[in-house]
Amino acid sequence: MSTSRPDKIDLDEIFVLRTKEVSKRFGAVKAVDQLSISIFREWITCIVGPNGSGKSSLINLLSGILPLDEGVVVIDGVGLRVLKAHEAPGHGITRTFQEVRLFDQISVWDNIMVTLTERRFLPALFERTSPQHKEKTQSILQSVGMWEKKDAMAMDLSYGQRKLLEIGRAMAMDVSIYLFDEPFAGLFPQMLERVKSILKDMREQGNTIIFVSHNMDIVRELSDHLFVLDSGALLAVGEVDEVLSRPNVIDAYLGT
């Protein structure tokens, strides 16, 4: 990691997350094919691509939901060939899901609370809810505008509220890298604005955000950096407007 020559650029200083030739196959289908990407620290990075291009698979690989077939993921200078889901927060990674996955039959309050409490099972047995936990939960719920709903069951919320709660749950993790899988899909304009401002605030606070979206207006507005995937491989990478005007990107993704 650290170099003996001071003039050499330390990649891990610039990139919080890198993948080196990671692959994931499902049977004969290559969902992610020898993909190498680098994510800038404290930027909002967007991943776009047609359906089935491997965006969600990539997010699943980075969050440990899927095991890597090949390749290495370098998080904050630590190279990993195996990343387990329950270890991802330890490396500073959390995520949301494309299909909102809340803990449906427990309260909104407990949905946030569960991300704050003790991770080891034995101490967890003897841990009761502390005032710090309550304060944190309250501030998270207020920041996503769900405080009034705290006693409702997660399953009784509207779709937009569920999306917000899921983002709140990720925020409560207090990590440095956030993976959002389509955080804007199916949201009202008003909710869209709210999620956008949440993401911008998170960037202001020094977090790295990676999100997947199909909404090109939002992609243009939010992203500092853009990856275009096609068939599990990298099609284009760079500054948003420039990438989206490339002919091969337009062909593959935006259509004519």
Binding site: S63, G64, I65, A85, H86, E87, A88, P89, G90, T94, R95, F97, R101, L102, F103, D104, Q105, I106, D110, M113, V114, T115, T117, E118, R119, R120, F121, A124, L125, F126, E127, R128, T129, R169, M173
Partner: peptide, 26 residues
């Protein structure tokens, strides 16, 4: 206890619970 809350989370979505750093098998 906190343990009990994690149990209900496992009931609702085991994989999501894992993503939040819990080793659900334990």
């Amino acid at each position: 206890s906190s343990f009990g809350r994690v149990l209900t989370a496992i009931r609702e979505d085991e994989q999501a619970t894992e993503v939040f750093g819990y080793q659900v098998t334990h």
